[in-house]
């Protein structure tokens, strides 16, 4: 009896040891590369730290500086505006373009595999190559895009060389709206919408055909079927993509660094939060201030995600009622 129980216990503890060994590499990475940095940067955000001397506790000074810059619209304030502008514009457009392309790919016509590959391809082009390509295409003087725009009688924007913000505040009807650096970054991100499109396409395939057949019997046209069947059934995936899209857009760094001469040029119009943190840390050696920005970014991202989840109950439709 006794031996049986102890052997069960031995087997039990043996199982735990085995499991620990399997997850050990990840667990070590978690402690070393996530948990420790997480705690350290939280502490440093309350410090003055230039790497040369040890961190010195300064209380909420870094956060007060952030609040000050936010109110004056300088430094951190600029970066918040630029990041929000880019994130909202690129996410909204990527939903529209992604759903639109996926719906087009679900039509039963020939050559869909080729179209799908063409729409998807730009999303795998390395960011460094895409940045070189788009800076050349969008060159205000001799770029191909402006050449074609002028050819059809449209104004030639300054793109990466301009500080204009065409998408907000909305001024599209005045005819004076000109695209600037952030709009060019948004255009680049819409070109790479392919990965979101593939997710929408997979979701479209999961919508039961019987729903469309029933609607057709009721005499619903294409638009009404899209509005009453496609969109509600797609809404969970749209929700997922908005959350992922916001997370990705807010953290965008490589393309921002490359098109802005590494400093948010022209005139801080592309100074996004990620670039601002990088410059504060590795150019100005203000590790405390940089950590405070990173933490604000994290908190805002959490708040945005929570808000999205909260709003989802009003517009996301789950098959078979809410979960």
């Amino acid at each position: 009896m006794n031996t049986g129980a102890s052997s069960t216990r031995r087997r039990h503890s043996g199982r735990i040891v085995t499991a620990l060994l399997f997850i050990a590499p990840w667990a070590l990475g978690f402690l070393l590369l996530v948990l420790y940095p997480f705690a350290a940067s939280l502490y440093w955000s309350f410090c003055e730290y230039d790497l040369l001397s040890p961190p010195r506790f300064v209380g909420g000074a870094n956060y007060r500086r952030l609040a000050h810059e936010l109110l004056n619209g300088e430094g951190f304030g600029r970066a918040v505006w630029n990041t929000a502008y880019y994130a909202v514009a690129s996410v909204v457009l990527s939903v529209l373009a992604g759903v639109g392309l996926a719906v087009m790919l679900s039509w039963k016509v020939r050559g869909q595999a080729i179209y799908r590959a063409i729409f998807f391809l730009p999303s795998v082009v390395p960011t460094v190559a895409a940045a070189v390509l788009w800076m050349w295409l969008l060159d205000p003087g001799g770029g191909l895009v402006n050449h074609w725009l002028t050819a059809v009688g449209l104004p030639a924007p300054n793109w990466f060389k301009g500080v204009q913000e065409a998408l907000w505040p909305p001024d599209w009807w005045s005819g004076r709206a000109a695209f600037g650096s952030k709009d060019a970054l948004v255009l680049m991100s819409v070109w790479g919408v392919g990965n979101f499109m593939i997710i929408y396409l997979a979701a479209l395939g999961d919508i039961p055909k019987s729903l469309y057949e029933a609607a057709a019997l009721d005499g619903a046209g294409n638009l009404r079927r899209f509005w009453h069947i496609t969109l509600p059934n797609l809404s969970p995936v749209i929700f997922f993509n908005i959350v992922m899209g916001v997370i990705q857009a807010v953290q965008a760094f490589t393309q921002v660094y490359l098109v802005s001469e590494g400093r948010g040029a022209p005139a801080e119009s592309t100074l996004m939060l990620s670039l601002h943190i990088f410059l504060a840390a590795f150019q100005n050696l203000e590790m405390g201030y940089a950590s405070a920005i990173a933490w604000m970014l994290f908190v805002v991202l959490l708040a945005a995600t929570a808000a999205l989840f909260h709003s989802s109950r009003y517009w996301v439709h789950y098959q078979g009622g809410s979960p």
Binding site: Y36, S41, I277, I293, A294
Partner: peptide, 24 residues
């Protein structure tokens, strides 16, 4: 529980861990 922790780390922006990671 530990798996939930792993999922949660995906929400953490790389900026938050960048500086301590670099120094480490």
């Amino acid at each position: 529980l530990v798996f939930g922790l792993l999922i949660a780390t995906m929400l953490l922006p790389w900026h938050v861990t960048m500086i301590p990671r670099f120094l480490l």
